[in-house]
């Protein structure tokens, strides 16, 4: 079929990947603006107002300023590692981006997901490359010659190691239920019933573990500002700081997408709604993005509404509570699958 040829053309796929990169950057900027506005609402103030109407250009101003600031590399820092660490961090999130679909187009009942690649092990791949950011943070800790960076980075290790395990087990239980490691297949498997209904415990554990993975507030010990000044990012100036900052937000968006893809049904809609071609092009992606936005909203709300855990409490939470819960969920899923539900 001709449509298939167009869609699976490698050149077009690469262009699509680049476009998605731009989209995710834009998404991160919108998310930062959104966070600043929402936090302002919670705290009964206005938030950015001056740069553009309601401060929509605030991030542009920040980016201009960060790009033109002096780039300081501390004298005692290991220059090569120091300079390349933000690039590794950025690479980690962009590699994740490759496998995550951003929605889907449904034409004549046939689903064509918008993703740069369509691999069979994409969920495994995402899990693997997201751990690359750990290397980036290790490079920061090693090179920056700052004790706050070291402390922040080590907290990050302790946290990430703790939370990758329950996260992985939750993904395994999802994969068992869907019978595939492909994200697109997993979304397809949720067609009538979302996985949040079949395994609510799994969703709960996955959500918390994902938040810890993203480093959002109750778990942002790696850069807890009052203790460690700015954590692992303390020594970075100008756009290197900006890259670290952006990487964090992109990670947040991608994580929210994963939550929606694995548990909240992705772009699945009743077939009647997508029968029309135009609706089929627009609606599934819009539905998917809307759910992602809701998840991001919830994560931001939590960020501004709770205090921060101590690092040993975070590790305790992971090993003593989340890990047993995730195993319980795994057993539950196996029983469900064996019963053929």
């Amino acid at each position: 079929m001709q449509l298939d040829e167009i869609i699976f053309n490698p050149l077009l796929r690469s262009i699509l990947g680049l476009v998605l990169m731009g989209v995710i950057f834009l998404g991160a900027m919108v998310a930062i603006w959104f966070e600043r506005k929402l936090s302002a609402d919670i705290q009964q103030r206005y938030g950015p107002m001056r740069a553009g109407p309601h401060g929509v250009l605030q991030l542009v101003a920040d980016a201009i300023k960060l790009f033109t600031k002096e780039d300081i590399i501390p004298r005692d820092a290991d220059r090569l590692l120091f300079v390349s660490a933000p690039i590794v961090l950025m690479a980690s999130v962009f590699l994740m981006l490759v496998a995550i679909p951003f929605g889907a187009i449904i034409i004549n009942g046939e689903t064509y997901p918008i993703a740069a690649t369509d691999m069979d092990i994409s969920i495994l791949y995402i899990q693997a490359v997201s751990a690359i950011s750990l290397i980036g943070i290790f490079m920061v800790a090693y090179s920056a010659n700052n004790k706050f960076s070291v402390l922040g980075a080590f907290r990050n290790f302790a946290r990430m190691i703790g939370y990758e395990v329950p996260l992985g087990i939750c993904i395994v239980s999802v994969a068992i239920m869907a019978g595939s490691l492909n994200v697109i297949e997993i979304v397809k498997a949720q067609d009538p019933l979302w996985f949040i209904i079949k395994q609510p415990l799994g969703f709960f554990v996955f959500f918390i573990a994902m938040m810890a993975d993203m480093g959002r507030l109750p778990f942002d010990q790696n850069e807890s500002e009052e203790e460690l000044v700015a954590g692992w990012i303390t020594e970075y100036t100008s756009m290197r700081f900006g890259l670290g900052f952006f990487a964090e937000y992109i990670h947040m968006i991608l994580g929210s997408m994963l939550i929606v893809l694995l548990f909240l049904g992705g772009w699945n809609l009743p077939a009647a709604l997508t029968a029309n071609t135009i609706l089929g092009i627009i609606l599934p992606t819009a539905f998917f993005m809307g759910k992602v936005a809701l998840v991001i909203l919830f994560i931001i709300l939590i960020r501004w509404a709770v205090p921060r855990y101590r690092i040993d409490q975070v590790v305790d939470l992971s090993w003593k509570k989340l890990l047993p819960l995730s195993f319980l969920n795994l057993i539950w899923v196996v029983v469900l699958v064996l019963l053929g539900v």
Partner: peptide, 13 residues
């Protein structure tokens, strides 16, 4: 409490 503040707490700025 946070959600309440969004709706019932007008900016005091």
């Amino acid at each position: 409490t946070a959600i309440k503040n969004i709706y019932f707490g007008p900016p005091v700025t």
